[in-house]
Design a protein around this nucleic acid. Structure first.
Lengths: 211, 211, 211, 211
DNA sequence: AATGAATGAGCCTTCATTCAT
DNA sequence: GATGAATGAAGGCTCATTCAT
C-alpha cells in the first residue's frame, strides 16, 4: 500500500499546486488532501519541493516515453516517415496534454520547481537521453534533404511552438475547442516550418497528415 | 525624486523576481536591493504583489503599445499590408523581448502574479483594448481572403507560438543565437500558418518578408 | 547476542553524544550508527534518555568500583596508607579517564542527563554507597590527625579539583601531555591540600594567605 | 529602550537555560519570560544559539576583565606580588561566581553552546587576549624563580581546579558553605601547588611523590 | 527479539505588514 | 515622503515514539 500512499500524495499535491501554485501550497494542504500524516509525507519525499520535482520529472518522462514509443513505428529513412514523425511529435504532445491536463498545467508552471541539485541532475539526464533518441531519428531526414537544416532550438520552436501556445490557452480556459480538434492544422504548420517541400509543393500544402 | 525611488523599487523587484521567483522573493530582498526603507516601499505600493502586478501590466502595455504603433503604418486593406502585419507582430514581439529580456523573463513567469481583483481588472481591460485594435486590423484581411478564417486562439498559436518558444529558450540560455537572427524564419512560418497562399505559391516560399 | 546489540547501541550512543551532545543526538543517529532498528532500540532502552543515563551510571560505577578495589590494598590506620590513598584517588581517577576518554568526556557533559526519577534513584543510591566506603577509609585518617578535618566538599575539591581540570583540558584537546604524565604532581598537590604535614608542618598549614 | 529589551531577553534566556538546559529551552519560553515578541527576539539575536553564545562570551569577558583589573594593582616583580596574584585569581574567580551564580551555572553547562563560527571566533579571540595578559604577569614570576615552571594546563589545573570543583558543588546545591568561606584554603592550596616555597624550599619542591 | 513505516505534536524561523517618529 | 523597530501569524520540518507484523 506504500505505493498507493505515495500516489495519493502526488495526486493531492498536483491538485494543490495547480490551484494555488507550488509556493502557496502548504505541506498541510497536501497532508489534508492526501490523508497522509506529516511524517509519512516526509517519509516518502525529501521535502515539499521534492514532490513538485517528482511530478515534473515523471510527467516529462511519461510524455517523452510515449513519443519515443510512437516514433519507433515510423521509418526514419523515408520522406513519409520524417513527415509523419513531425506530425507525431505535435500530436503526441497535444494528445498527452489533453489526456493529462492537470499534469500539463503543472509542467507549464515552469521547470524552476526543479531546483534541488539531485533533482536537476535526474531531470537533465533524462532530457539528454530523450533528446539523443529524437536526434537519432531526424538525422537521416536532414542528411537526405527531407528536413531543413535548422538549429535545434529553431526546429523546436517551429514544431512545438504553436501547439504549446494553443495548449496554454486551452489549459487557461481561454479557448474551448480541444487541442485534438486543431492538431491537423498545428501538425501541418510544423511541417511547413521544418520540412523541405518537394518540387510541386502545391501538392504538399493540402496533403493529408497521417495520424 | 519620488519617481526615481519608485523606479528603483520596480527595477530591484524585477531583478529579484527573475533570480528567485516572485514567491521566493521577500520584501526585504527588494528593500535591500532598491535601497528603499520598508516604509517607503509600502508607501509606493500596496504590497509585494502590487509590485509584481505593476511590472507585469506595464510590460504588457509597453509591448502592446509598440505593436499598435507599428501597425498604424501598414495598410489593412492590402495583401501586402496583412502579410507585413503578421511579420510585424512576430518581429515586434521578438525585438521587444531582445530589448527587454528581464521584463520578458518576468512576464513568462506567468500572469498568475496578477491576482488582486483591482490589478486583474486593470490588466483585463488593457488586454481587451489591445485585442480590439488588433482584430480591427485583421478583420479586413479575413473578409478579403488574405488570411485564413481561424479561431482567435489558433491564430495566436500559429503566429506567436514559434517566436514565444524560441524566446523562452533564448531567455533560458538554451540557445545563444539571438531572436532577431531567426525572426525572418519565424515570420515566414507565421505567415505560412495563417496566410492564404496565392495561386503560384512557389513564389511565396522563398519570398522576402518586409521588415 | 542480545547483549552485543545492547552494547552496540551504547557504544554508538556514546560516540554520538560526544560528537553532538545528548540533546542534539537523534534516536535516528544512534540507530544508524549502531545498526539497530528503531524498534530494537526501544526494546533495549526505555527512551533516548535511558541510554544516556545507563552510560553515565555505568561509567560512574566502573570508576568507583576500581577505586574501592585499589583502596582495599591500603592500610587506613597508618599515615602512609592515608597518604597513599589520597594519591590513589587522584591516580585512579586519572588512569580511568586516560583509559576511557570517551566515557569520561561524556560524564563531563554533566549529570543532568540523568533526570528520570528511576535513573536518578539508582545513581544516587550508587553514589551514596560509594561515598560511604570512601568515608569509612578516611575516618581513621582524620581521627588520628593524618588528614585535616575538612568539609567533604572542600576535601573533594582539593583532591579531585586539579585532576578534573587537567582532565577537562586534555579531553578538550587543550593540552597534549597525557594525564598520567602529570599524576605525580597532581597527587602531591592533593596531599598538600588535605594532608597534615609532619615536622615543621605548622608553618605551612596555617600560613596566612594574603587577601 | 532597545538596550533594556536586549537585556531582558538575555536575562530571561539565562533563567530558562539554567532551568531546562539550552536545548530544552524553546524560543517561546524566552519570548514569554522576556516579554519580547518573536520578531523582536530575532531582531536582536541571530537565533537561539546566538543568545546562549552571547551570555557565555559576555560572562567570560566580565570575569576576565575583573581579574585583569585587579591584577593591575599588584607588582609582578616581587614574590609577594606573584603570591598575591595567585590568590587573586582564585578569589576573583570565587567572588565572581558567588556574585553571578546564574551566569556561572550557565557557563559550567559548557562552552559547546558556542558553536557558530562567528561566535567561536569572537570567543577565541577574547580568550587569547585574556591569556596573553595573564602570561605577561606571570612570566617575571617564573623567570625570577617565584613560580614553578609548569605547563600552562597544569598551572591552570593547580590554581583553578579546586575552586572550580568547589564552585560546581556549591552551584549544584551539594554544599551550603559559600565559596567565599573557603577561598583562603583554596588560595593557599593554589599557592602550594604552583609557588616555589622559601626557606627549606628544596625539601618541598623536589620532594618525592610516592606512587 | 527485531523491524521500519506511520504518527503527529511541537519547534524554530521567516516575513509581510504596521506604526510611531 | 521616509524610516526601521516591532509585531505575531503561519509554515516547513524534525524527531521521539508506537505498533502491526
Amino acid at each position: 500500500m506504500a505505493q498507493s500512499r505515495r500516489q495519493a500524495i502526488l495526486s493531492a499535491a498536483l491538485a494543490c499546486f495547480n490551484e494555488k501554485g507550488v509556493a502557496q501550497t502548504t505541506v498541510d494542504d497536501i497532508r489534508q488532501r492526501s490523508g497522509a500524516s506529516t511524517g509519512s509525507l516526509y517519509h516518502h519525499f525529501r521535502d515539499k519541493e521534492a514532490i513538485a520535482a517528482t511530478l515534473y520529472i515523471e510527467a516529462m518522462a511519461d510524455h517523452a516515453g510515449r513519443l519515443i514509443e510512437v516514433l519507433h513505428a515510423l521509418d526514419p529513412d523515408s520522406r513519409e516517415g520524417q513527415k509523419a514523425a513531425i506530425g507525431t511529435i505535435v500530436k503526441t504532445y497535444g494528445n498527452w496534454i489533453e489526456k493529462n491536463p492537470e499534469l500539463a498545467r503543472f509542467v507549464f508552471l515552469g521547470r524552476s520547481v526543479v531546483s534541488h541539485p539531485e533533482d536537476r541532475e535526474r531531470l537533465e539526464k533524462q532530457n539528454r537521453s530523450h533528446l539523443r533518441q529524437l536526434m537519432a531519428f531526424f538525422e537521416p531526414g536532414i542528411s537526405q534533404g527531407f528536413l531543413k537544416e535548422l538549429p535545434l532550438s529553431l526546429f523546436h520552436a517551429l514544431v512545438i511552438g504553436p501547439a504549446q501556445d494553443y495548449a496554454r490557452q486551452w489549459l487557461g480556459g481561454r479557448t474551448e475547442k480541444p487541442i485534438t480538434a486543431v492538431l491537423p492544422v498545428l501538425s501541418e504548420a510544423a511541417w511547413m516550418g521544418v520540412g523541405v517541400l518537394q518540387d510541386d509543393a502545391a501538392n504538399e500544402g493540402g496533403g493529408p497528415v497521417p495520424d
